[in-house]
Design a protein around this nucleic acid. Structure first.
Lengths: 241, 241, 241, 241
DNA sequence: AATGAATGAGCATTCATTCAT
DNA sequence: TATGAATGAATGCTCATTCAT
């Protein structure tokens, strides 16, 4: 009703459209993050963005499209930061540490955003075709895939990582573990702090510290070449139920 | 319409009620897991459990109550298994490994259940009062809290764990990381396999292997006393955003 | 669950039934009056009366029956009081005053009960067959009908009432006006006090005072004998619209 | 399904909205009055007004809002008529008589509307905050409050009313009594006629006649034989509504 | 006489989305 | 491009009442 676009520097139409789009996206991200994607109605979105429902549908033809647009934006940011981390460090281990550290900061500073992605993982990715997700990932440059592809190999070569890591597996496993940990912490928020009696931040940092300890090459590598084998013995594949 | 009580052998009322309750819970868990908690309607639940809506409401007066009952059941199971793992191993490290191994098995065999808990974390725990969650946890014996409380201390003493771990922090961090990792993998399911090109199982097992490597005492501990300090240097607290 | 009939003096079955019935009726009257007839559910009634729903249905086969039973009880009380008032006074006017005074007391002391009857008038009498109401009235002796039938004639004869009152109309009109006034005041309760800035009690008493003034014979009755006739001519029952 | 907007001449939006609103209100008033407010479902309302449920909810977001809108409309009408009556008569007694006569006409011609208000008094006003009622009254100009405030004082001064009336009480008491009487008669409808053997109209008119007799000054009776005749002049058979 | 279990019909309200202008 | 109006299909939940024991 009262919300008129008072700030309209570039009077061109494409620019106007872009501004409107951003307005919707900003309002949506805020609400999604505050109350959960499913709990936000299109009506609320229109109120928050100062548009009419029908106008909104001229920018996004489905609610899902808004969700995807936000997911895409976030993934692009993360991806950019990952590349950055990659470039700023010397050894492979340093690169990994830089990436994990970035995640810790993201958890501390963008917790709402992380929670949004947690919701997306838990509820939405499920409903939508894989291709869409992959397309999105491809668009947002390359995330773990490309950047991290050869990091393990590189680290084994430069002596910063244990030699018994699997170049085709370990990095993916670590990235996934870090993301899973981070998003769970963000989701549960204060609940986890009450439950565990520790701050989210410390919990996350301790987890990645252990992971890093597990990745790094030891001073006396000859003491642990058989680690893997031992694990196998210790953890027999007994099926439960 | 179609709801006939074909099995009415045990004529005792409490037993009957218990059977009906289970019927509802089983149907609900299946549906929740298949399509997501929010996406399942009460009407579907009644069809699936072969009862009338009104009958169902005599067992659970709110949809939420069904969700909580399932959460409680799962947490109790997990808790029981945790204690079991605790009892079956000798060194502290072995206990931890047994617990993580149990989680790997759970991921492999009860993936749907794990996905349910992931949804709960992401969407529901958020809406509900902490006390309810804590009560539930208290009821289901004691989960990590009690069982794991002194594991780190114990492990440092018995020489199976690194001496620089934090007795009040590390175990909580590890448990949370394992749960986060496990639930994310269960949520994304085949998506993660396509994305990373590795099976869920291998990804999870590799992640816990690295964690275990990070926890275990090294042969020559004097080589790594300053690990912690180094980490701190390597990971400067630069703010993003 | 816990409510057992601890007080069971006469162990005979009819007496037991009577006690149960009273229990239900007492609980129902309380609830109906507190929250309105329609707003009270049978489930609440069972809780309040300490019985099971199915047990209750052995005493009253429909919710309506409970309502009617209460209405009957109240009407019987009122009727008894009316006769009492009738007997205790000398002149016809005194009898009328005694009755109106009784209504004022009822409003002050049994406001909830009066409100119940107001609800009954407004919502229920509408749905139910006239005969039922008339039967009820016949049972509870005779209310205005008999007792008041000849009061006006009597009053004109004994000189306490105006001579231009209509023996077949005035008394009914007065009784109805008093009941309507009383029930409205009970219904609106504190609202009317806020609206009019006067207590319910004073409003009712002033209303009946004016009515009594209008009924009583004047010093020089010969001056106004024809009022009535003129009125009749002057205000024909012309229908508008 | 059947809802066609056959009449769409005035192409202006606000006018259209107003027409739709009226459509809903008219249908609602009719149904509420026929079957009682609580007994009418939103579904019936939509059928009766020829709209879809969802459309209706764009005009009134709660069932209560519809009830209030109707109450407001009726109160405004009554209020307007009260002022009119006030303006059209000379002596204070004449003004009062004009108002009571209006109520008699309302009972005769708008019985359904009166019954609706009776339901509102008995069931609804109870549930809702006083402020809402008072606000409504304030909006619909001023009803008894303002118009009648000084009527008693005025009447004592001009010699038309008894000198022993209470300027701060009597008028309120009379207005309330008249409304209570009128609404009860409308509620009970044919029942009261069967019970009392007199028409609703006659019962109400006799009641107000007695009230007027009770109000009027008696000192010089010769001054008032024609009071009622004046009424005739004062209250022409003007159409209501 | 008492009661645990069951239920059918309904109810107010919501919401993403489309259409006509 | 913008928007006021409209809507179909649900949605979670209620309640008086009936059965079988």
């Amino acid at each position: 009703m009262a919300s008129k676009k008072q700030k309209s520097p570039p009077r061109t139409y494409p620019a106007h459209r872009e501004r409107q789009r951003k307005r919707i996206l900003d309002a949506a991200e805020k609400l999604f993050v505050e109350r959960g994607i499913d709990r936000v109605t299109m009506a609320e979105l229109t109120v928050a963005s100062g548009l009419q429902p029908s106008t909104m549908y001229q920018y996004f033809s489905k609610k899902d499209d808004i969700v995807w647009a936000i997911v895409g934006k976030i993934m692009a940011t993360v991806s950019a930061r990952a590349s950055e981390a990659d470039a700023s460090a010397k050894s492979a281990l340093d690169k990994i540490i830089a990436f994990l550290e970035y995640m810790a900061e993201e958890l501390a500073n963008q917790r709402a955003q992380v929670r949004f992605m947690a919701q997306f993982d838990a509820m939405y990715s499920h409903d939508w075709p894989v291709e869409r997700l992959l397309t999105l990932e491809a668009e947002s440059s390359n995330m773990g895939s490309e950047v991290f592809r050869d990091l393990i190999r590189e680290g084994i070569a430069d002596g910063s990582l244990r030699s018994d890591l699997d170049p085709d597996l370990t990095m993916q496993a670590i990235v996934n573990a870090a993301i899973g940990t981070q998003r769970r912490l963000a989701s549960l928020g204060s609940k986890v702090e009450l439950e565990y009696g520790q701050s989210i931040d410390r919990l996350f940092r301790e987890a990645i510290r252990v992971i890093v300890l597990g990745l790094r090459a030891t001073a006396s590598p000859q003491n642990e070449p058989s680690t893997r084998v031992k694990d196998r013995k210790v953890i027999p594949a007994r099926r439960i139920k």
